[in-house]
Design a binder for these strands. Structure first.
Lengths: 208, 208
DNA sequence: AAAAATATTGTACTGATGGACAGATTAGAT
DNA sequence: ATCTAATCTGTCCATCAGTACAATATTTTT
């Protein structure tokens, strides 16, 4: 079983060589002629034709894994839909790449934990609403908060520190923390970073 | 990295001992005190409090895998939603358990193939109908960074802590800090929060 | 009237964060 | 052969963030 790494110029990143000493660099044109059934093909998504290439390689009995510099959920889902068996970060460490190889060559599927959590989280809520009474309306997160908590949440989502929020709202830093703790609990996030991520779509809508 | 197997009576199945010679049996009460960050905790779902236990263990930096005698999709989704990294059959063979351990300790997620296909297949259609992926307006910022710094910046912009980034890129937390300091200086931001704002695809200023 | 939700502030603690000093190594360019 | 940029790691320390206990006052709901 051979490893093929597909980039535009056929270059072979040192990390890949480290992960798989027998790794072979190649191009979209050449890999179709040289790869044998059962081989593992890694394609960098900066290769514009990766969707078409994936669609041709999978029926040939090749296992395809996509590598992206800026992983995006939609791209990952598209890759899996086209028959790819994995989607990982181009900069993944050597031991991670070996792990991916192990999984996908054993009939497994590899996707990042974040995507899976997102995908499954969304599906879980959808499934739950059919059988259970789920009070969480996932439409607008801010609707779950009180007026004061909303103020704090919005300030934090703009990157403000606790001290800054306190100054803006003319309350003590301790009170800001109290509101934040309530916000974290209500929205089920662990810290202000996750809060920013959860509220970022709202910021986007609010400015249009 | 230690393995902990949680059952009601703290018994240790022979299969588990075979898979991991250094496996330690424990109970829901004891594991919280004895397990260290990075350890892998296997919980049998016949332990009624597994959801609460999982929620407490995950934030502690522990990797949690659920084992069920009668795997069900819904239970698996709940487990993953609570932060578990794997869901397998209690009677899985030793070599399968070792495989699961390898995957989950490398930022991967282990679920049955059927469930994964079901979940991803269903979600893909839902996500596809959304708006097109916006061309990343952050490419200019990322261009200022080195390859490694880009990896760190992207992970942080997804809300990861330094410890998580370190695990993902297989470097020490100290090195993550070094890269972050360089990133902050290059992009003229004071902390990770401002970095997130700068790298978030859509900014409020951009729409004015 | 009683209960619940909201808003506010306090102390003390743990863990995360970022900077201040640093040094070591490796690959590539001049 | 030097030099430079990139990568990785170390200790120490001040600050920040979040929680665990709080308590008190006001408003709203039942």
């Amino acid at each position: 079983m051979d490893h093929w790494f597909i980039t535009m110029d056929g270059s072979l990143k040192a990390r890949w060589q480290k992960a798989f000493p027998d790794a072979k660099p190649s191009t979209p044109e050449l890999v179709e002629k040289r790869a044998k059934s059962g081989d593992l093909v890694w394609i960098v998504t900066s290769v514009a034709s990766w969707p078409q290439l994936t669609q041709r390689l999978v029926p040939m009995g090749l296992t395809v894994v996509l590598l992206s510099y800026a992983p995006q959920d939609k791209e990952a889902l598209k890759a899996l839909d086209l028959g790819a068996r994995g989607y990982a970060h181009t900069l993944a460490a050597a031991n991670v790449l070996r792990q991916v190889a192990l999984v996908v060559t054993n009939q497994g599927v590899w996707v990042g934990q974040e995507l899976l959590a997102k995908v499954i989280g969304g599906t879980f809520k959808a499934l739950s609403q059919r059988t259970e009474v789920s009070p969480s309306a996932d439409s607008d997160h801010l609707a779950l908060l009180t007026e004061r908590e909303r103020g704090v949440a919005l300030a934090v989502s703009r990157g403000a520190t606790n001290k800054e929020v306190a100054r803006q709202l003319d309350i003590t830093e301790r009170t800001v923390k109290a509101h934040l703790s309530a916000i974290f609990k209500k929205l089920s996030v662990r810290d202000r970073l996750q809060l920013m991520l959860k509220l970022s779509p709202i910021r986007e809508q609010a400015s249009h």
